[in-house]
Amino acid sequence: QKTLKYAHFQPAKDDQPKHVAALAFKEHVEKATNGSIKVEIFPAGQFGKDQPTMEALRLGTLEMAVAHDGAIGTVHKPIGVLGIPFLYDNHEHAWRVYDSEWLKGFSDDMVKKTGIRALGFADNGVRHFTNSLRPIQTPADMKGMKIRIQPSPVFKALVESLGASASAIPWGELPTALQQKVVDGQENGVTNILAASLYQHQKYATLDGHVWSVHGYLVNDRFYTRLTDVERKAVDEGVKKAMAIHRKMTAEQDKNAKKILEGVGMQVYEPTAAQIAEFRKLAQPPVRQWAEGEIGKNYVDALFKAVEATRK
């Protein structure tokens, strides 16, 4: 019998997409392999924080993980291309990109460099700006705002291209920092805005959807290739099932963002297509240029090719 340790970073609750997906994966795999694989789930970062989890995947100390792009970036920088803002038209468009040939190219490269295989990508929520000063309708409204970012140069480039100043603050200190107006605003998906009750100190939300964060379904390649055909098929199908749940639950939240955020008392603005275009015009070229220089033109081009090919 093989043990498949499966780590993710969400609390073990049944309203958490990544945990529900993990449970579905476990059920499918254990059943489809007749118990030849035992799945042990380590939720809520129990197995470790992001970088050590990724390294454990490389070492084979951990067999599978569902990890956000920031975590993946600690061992494989090219994931950063997904941080280029304003890439997709809607969820379905993003999913078509994730499921396209691009995945195989990306994954093969990652296997070669890290020994980790990406079996697929699901959403980590579309990121929006919130702040405590005024409604952001156009980039001009962001002038001079202090926006919290994760300590990542991509987001620094993004926020600064829109005329705001970027302040790197750890996630754990964010609620306090917002309450105390250390920064005026921040950018996150709906899940995170709810999870840390950020709405308590952020009156305005703008559903600009600048970046589509992802979660990668990752497996240690050595473990994966040594599975029997039946087992590998079970894992592949388990991931498909899990991702379907994961995408659906997250997208539901994303698509109801206005209602959800208004429900917790925020004033929500949905930019028009023209305003989004204005955001894109300012933010995309500098970040794309940054990515081409820092990550590699081939990675950026491959992604843009997939984005254009799947646009309907």
């Binding site: 603050i169 306090t176 105390q180």
Partner: peptide, 9 residues
Amino acid sequence: ILTGLFTPT
């Protein structure tokens, strides 16, 4: 910390 001048760290 309470007035938001700085975070605990």
